[in-house]
Protein backbone atom coordinates (compact mmCIF):
# COMPACT_ATOMS: atom_id res chain seq x y z
CA UNK A 1 0.00 0.00 0.00
CA UNK A 2 1.14 3.54 -0.72
CA UNK A 3 1.47 5.46 2.51
CA UNK A 4 -0.08 8.64 1.18
CA UNK A 5 -2.77 9.44 3.71
CA UNK A 6 -3.47 8.97 7.40
CA UNK A 7 -7.06 7.98 8.03
CA UNK A 8 -8.96 8.26 11.29
CA UNK A 9 -11.33 5.67 12.74
CA UNK A 10 -13.14 7.98 15.18
CA UNK A 11 -15.01 5.20 16.95
CA UNK A 12 -11.72 3.74 18.16
CA UNK A 13 -10.25 7.07 19.28
CA UNK A 14 -10.26 7.66 23.05
CA UNK A 15 -8.81 11.21 22.85
CA UNK A 16 -5.74 10.05 24.76
CA UNK A 17 -3.65 12.73 23.01
CA UNK A 18 -0.67 10.40 22.42
CA UNK A 19 -0.57 11.10 18.68
CA UNK A 20 -0.84 14.86 19.23
CA UNK A 21 2.01 14.84 21.73
CA UNK A 22 4.31 12.56 19.77
CA UNK A 23 3.85 14.31 16.42
CA UNK A 24 7.22 15.93 15.61
CA UNK A 25 5.60 18.34 13.16
CA UNK A 26 2.92 19.44 15.63
CA UNK A 27 0.34 18.96 12.88
CA UNK A 28 -2.43 17.17 14.81
CA UNK A 29 -5.02 19.13 16.76
CA UNK A 30 -7.51 17.29 18.92
CA UNK A 31 -10.36 18.65 20.99
CA UNK A 32 -12.40 16.55 23.37
CA UNK A 33 -14.40 16.68 26.57
CA UNK A 34 -15.21 14.27 29.37
CA UNK A 35 -18.70 13.03 30.00
CA UNK A 36 -20.09 10.89 32.77
CA UNK A 37 -21.90 7.79 31.65
CA UNK A 38 -23.94 5.55 33.93
CA UNK A 39 -23.94 1.93 32.90
CA UNK A 40 -26.88 -0.19 33.94
CA UNK A 41 -25.88 -2.07 37.09
CA UNK A 42 -22.74 -0.02 37.67
CA UNK A 43 -22.22 1.32 41.16
CA UNK A 44 -21.04 4.76 40.06
CA UNK A 45 -20.92 6.62 36.73
CA UNK A 46 -17.73 6.34 34.67
CA UNK A 47 -15.98 9.13 32.83
CA UNK A 48 -15.39 8.80 29.12
CA UNK A 49 -13.63 11.13 26.71
CA UNK A 50 -15.74 12.29 23.80
CA UNK A 51 -13.97 13.40 20.65
CA UNK A 52 -15.11 16.83 19.49
CA UNK A 53 -12.68 17.55 16.69
CA UNK A 54 -9.60 15.95 15.17
CA UNK A 55 -7.57 17.82 12.55
CA UNK A 56 -4.46 16.87 10.64
CA UNK A 57 -2.71 19.79 8.97
CA UNK A 58 -1.30 18.20 5.84
CA UNK A 59 0.72 21.31 5.08
CA UNK A 60 2.89 20.37 8.07
CA UNK A 61 2.58 16.56 8.11
CA UNK A 62 5.76 14.83 6.96
CA UNK A 63 4.22 11.35 6.75
CA UNK A 64 6.54 9.90 9.39
CA UNK A 65 3.76 7.63 10.67
CA UNK A 66 4.67 8.06 14.34
CA UNK A 67 1.00 8.83 15.13
CA UNK A 68 -0.05 5.58 13.44
CA UNK A 69 2.56 3.62 15.41
CA UNK A 70 1.89 5.26 18.74
CA UNK A 71 -1.92 4.95 18.74
CA UNK A 72 -2.77 2.26 21.32
CA UNK A 73 -6.23 1.69 19.85
CA UNK A 74 -5.35 1.60 16.13
CA UNK A 75 -7.56 4.60 15.51
CA UNK A 76 -5.13 5.96 12.93
CA UNK A 77 -4.06 3.99 9.92
CA UNK A 78 -2.22 4.37 6.66
CA UNK A 79 -4.35 4.82 3.62
CA UNK A 80 -3.55 4.92 -0.05
CA UNK A 81 -5.58 7.98 -0.88
CA UNK A 82 -3.66 10.96 -2.11
CA UNK A 83 -4.00 13.88 0.23
CA UNK A 84 -5.32 16.73 -1.79
CA UNK A 85 -3.80 19.45 -3.85
CA UNK A 86 -4.82 23.00 -3.05
CA UNK A 87 -3.65 26.55 -3.46
CA UNK A 88 -4.96 27.45 -0.02
CA UNK A 89 -3.25 26.40 3.19
CA UNK A 90 -6.55 26.25 5.04
CA UNK A 91 -7.79 23.51 2.70
CA UNK A 92 -4.90 21.29 3.77
CA UNK A 93 -6.25 20.94 7.30
CA UNK A 94 -8.64 18.00 7.33
CA UNK A 95 -11.16 17.30 10.06
CA UNK A 96 -12.94 14.16 11.25
CA UNK A 97 -15.32 14.00 8.29
CA UNK A 98 -12.63 14.21 5.64
CA UNK A 99 -10.21 11.96 7.51
CA UNK A 100 -12.95 9.36 7.77
CA UNK A 101 -14.63 9.56 4.39
CA UNK A 102 -11.35 9.20 2.55
CA UNK A 103 -10.72 6.02 4.44
CA UNK A 104 -11.12 2.88 2.38
CA UNK A 105 -9.90 0.34 4.88
CA UNK A 106 -12.11 -2.24 3.18
CA UNK A 107 -9.39 -2.71 0.56
Amino acid sequence: MIHSFIALLPDKCTSCMLCVRECPAWCIHLDSHTEEVTDAGARRPKKINVLDSFDIDYSLCMYCGICVDVCPFDALEWDQHRALISDSRADLTLGITQLTSENDSAN
Partner: peptide, 25 residues
Protein backbone atom coordinates in the same frame (compact mmCIF):
# COMPACT_ATOMS: atom_id res chain seq x y z
CA UNK B 1 -1.24 21.28 20.38
CA UNK B 2 -0.38 18.57 22.94
CA UNK B 3 -0.91 20.92 25.87
CA UNK B 4 -4.69 20.55 25.54
CA UNK B 5 -6.47 18.26 27.97
CA UNK B 6 -10.06 17.04 27.87
CA UNK B 7 -12.34 19.16 29.97
CA UNK B 8 -14.75 17.58 32.40
CA UNK B 9 -18.23 18.69 31.51
CA UNK B 10 -21.56 18.16 33.19
CA UNK B 11 -24.72 19.11 31.35
CA UNK B 12 -22.58 20.90 28.77
CA UNK B 13 -20.87 23.01 31.44
CA UNK B 14 -17.17 22.89 32.16
CA UNK B 15 -16.71 21.77 35.75
CA UNK B 16 -13.08 20.78 35.94
CA UNK B 17 -9.82 20.06 34.20
CA UNK B 18 -8.07 16.76 34.89
CA UNK B 19 -4.52 17.94 34.20
CA UNK B 20 -2.40 18.02 37.31
CA UNK B 21 1.02 18.24 35.75
CA UNK B 22 2.07 20.26 32.75
CA UNK B 23 2.90 18.29 29.68
CA UNK B 24 5.98 19.18 27.71
CA UNK B 25 6.60 18.63 24.00
Amino acid sequence: PGAAEPEIKQDGRKVGNPSRRRQRP
